[in-house]
Each structure stands twice: as C-alpha cells, then as structure tokens.
Computed example of a mutant assay.
Amino acid sequence: MGRGRAKAKQTKVARDLKYRTHEVDIGALAKELHGEADQSADPVDESDEFDQWSDYADRD
C-alpha cells in the first residue's frame, strides 16, 4: 500500500523521457566519452576545502 504516488511519479518521468525531444551535442558527448579534457574548465583546487575544515581537525 502507499506505492501509488511513487509509481505515478515514475510513470510520469518515464513518459516524459520517452516522448520529449532532446537536443544532443554529439561533439561534447564524444569528447566526454573519449576522456578529452575541456580547455574552458577550471582545475579544481582541493586544498582550499581541507583548509576550511582544518580548525576542526583532531590534534594529537
């Protein structure tokens, strides 16, 4: 019991995916699948994330 809303939501999403037209950038998809790096993307610097929480680290 109680699966009615979840099933209705799944049906709605499935129908939307099936019948909606999607525009696909084939070039971008090929680059992503072949592992070519995007030149416009900024490299992620993870050191800032660790510095943010360094005050809470256990110090032995």
Rank of each mutant, 00 (worst) to 15 (best):
E36Q: 15
A6P: 03
S47K: 11
R20E: 15
E49G: 05
K18T: 15
D16K: 14
E46P: 05
D16R: 15
Y56A: 02
A30H: 02
R3K: 07
A37Q: 09
E32D: 12
A8W: 01
D60M: 06
M1I: 07
K18R: 14
D55H: 12
R15G: 12
V24G: 02
A14F: 14
R20F: 09
R5E: 08
A41H: 06
S47A: 08
Q52S: 03
A14I: 07
W53S: 00
Q39D: 11
I26H: 02
E36V: 09
G4S: 10
P43M: 14
A8Y: 01
D25Q: 02
V24C: 05
D38A: 11
L17N: 13
Y56H: 03
V13W: 10
E46V: 05
D42G: 10
Q52I: 00
Y56N: 01
L33F: 04
I26K: 09
E46D: 12
L17M: 14
A57N: 03
S40C: 02
K31S: 02
L33Y: 04
D55G: 08
D60S: 03
Y56Q: 04
A14R: 12
A57G: 01
T11E: 15
V24P: 02
G27P: 06
K18A: 15
R59Q: 08
R20I: 10
A28F: 02
A28G: 01
W53D: 00
K9D: 10
K12P: 04
Q39M: 13
D25C: 03
D51F: 03
R20M: 13
Y19A: 10
E46F: 05
S54M: 00
Q52W: 00
E49F: 11
D51C: 05
D16M: 15
A37C: 04
V24F: 03
E49N: 08
D55K: 01
D58P: 15
L33P: 04
K18P: 05
T11N: 09
D16C: 14
D42W: 11
E23W: 02
A8M: 03
Q39E: 12
Q10V: 07
G35P: 03
Q10K: 08
K31G: 07
W53L: 00
A6E: 05
L17V: 04
D38N: 07
D42A: 13
G35C: 01
F50V: 04
E23R: 06
Q39Y: 09
V13K: 06
R59A: 02
D60Q: 13
R5P: 02
D55Y: 01
Y19M: 13
R15V: 12
R15K: 13
R3S: 10
R5N: 08
W53T: 00
R15E: 15
Q52L: 00
T11D: 07
E36A: 14
Q52K: 01
